[in-house]
């Protein structure tokens, strides 16, 4: 798909009025994507955005590409069929935490384990927006909402942990307050041959405003965002004074560099075949209110699903020749009458 025509953000935007609430984090994600697309060297015609239902799911209507606003929770399944039928396409999947982790949780985990070549952007605002403010599968225990007036008693999902447990070959996290970080992360997801899951912390300023402020407000980032950089020791802090170490029990914990020494810091390796350390990193913060890793947790090479299917077709054609209907109809015993 190289040598795509030169485009600008305008070329990737439709003429449709964007209908998210003013101040919604989805706007910044949309802008980040529309600004990034011209840099990917892909044609709009070869790009498809597929979504389910929810606020985030309106996304395809605003992208001047091919697109499908499908049904609740099923976007990974639609995308799997399209990516298998048309491996030549760039397929992006957009959904929120309700769409992807509640009603669509099953499709998400199976798309990830199969490693079909789709880029999944999971907008996690930890609340139901379009149905007006019920708790979601990522809402914290105790969350008071219209449907949980006495506080939610549901243990939430950690999207990154879930994806790693589902055999995902590419898992990352970014947030709606940092366009550059989003774009870098989305580009990595796009470049990955297989299923990529990017969790995007996204503010819902109507039903869950400020949920991520502790970690994503500019002033709070140095102390509470942990940048994962492949091959580098994991360190953060206002003065870069803290880091991540693996303790004697194999737990990943935060430590003062002054106490443990620089050499003790865990060096981030996206390509570890075993997802164990990535999983441990995903458990570092219990929620978006203490130091939280951002960036690519895991990126490993594994056979891409549609390629696997295509190679079976090619092998069958090689072995048997192209299908011939006349021969097929006579593949069981036949007899002649008169």
């Amino acid at each position: 798909m190289a040598n795509a025509p030169v485009t600008t953000k305008k070329d990737w935007a439709t003429d449709q009025e964007v209908r998210w609430c003013p101040g919604c984090g989805d706007y910044s994600i949309l802008t980040a994507v529309q600004l990034m697309m011209p840099e990917l060297d892909v044609r709009r015609e070869d790009t498809v955005f597929i979504s389910g239902i929810g606020c985030a799911a309106r996304f395809p209507y605003y992208m001047n590409t091919f697109g499908m606003h499908s049904i609740h929770g099923r976007s990974p399944a639609f995308s799997t069929g399209l990516a298998m039928a048309r491996p030549d396409l760039d397929v992006w999947v957009i959904g929120g935490d309700g769409d992807m982790l509640s009603i669509g949780g099953n499709h998400l985990i199976h798309a990830l384990r199969r490693n079909v070549n789709i880029n999944i952007l999971l907008f996690n605002n930890m609340i139901y927006g379009l149905t007006k403010g019920q708790y979601s599968p990522t809402s914290e225990v105790g969350k008071v909402t219209k449907s949980s007036p006495y506080g939610s008693i549901d243990q939430p999902f950690n999207a990154v942990s879930l994806a790693l447990g589902a055999e995902a070959s590419f898992v990352a996290r970014t947030h709606d307050m940092d366009r550059q970080h989003m774009q870098e992360t989305f580009k990595r997801a796009h470049a990955h041959n297989g299923a990529s899951l990017v969790e995007v912390y996204q503010n819902c300023n109507v039903f869950n405003d400020g949920q991520f402020d502790t970690i994503t407000k500019r002033a709070n980032r140095p102390a509470n965002l942990i940048d994962l950089v492949h091959g580098e020791p994991i360190r953060f802090g206002v003065d870069n004074e803290r880091g991540v170490v693996m303790d004697d029990s194999g737990n990943v914990v935060i430590a003062e560099v002054a106490d443990v020494g620089e050499d003790a810091l865990l060096v981030h390796d996206e390509h570890r075949p075993d997802p164990g350390v990535a999983f441990a990193l995903s458990r570092l913060a219990a929620g978006p209110h203490s130091p939280t890793p951002m960036g690519v947790f895991r990126s490993v090479d594994r056979i891409e699903y549609a390629a696997g299917a295509t190679s079976q077709l090619a092998a069958a054609q090689e072995a048997k020749g192209p299908g011939d209907l006349h021969t097929l109809l006579r593949s069981n015993p036949t007899w002649e009458v008169g």
Binding site: I50, R74, F78, T80, G81, L82, M84, A85, H107
Partner: peptide, 14 residues
Amino acid sequence: IAAVCSAIGASYGG
């Protein structure tokens, strides 16, 4: 559900 949805995806792809 995934079975029919994947088929619709493939139909969209031609």
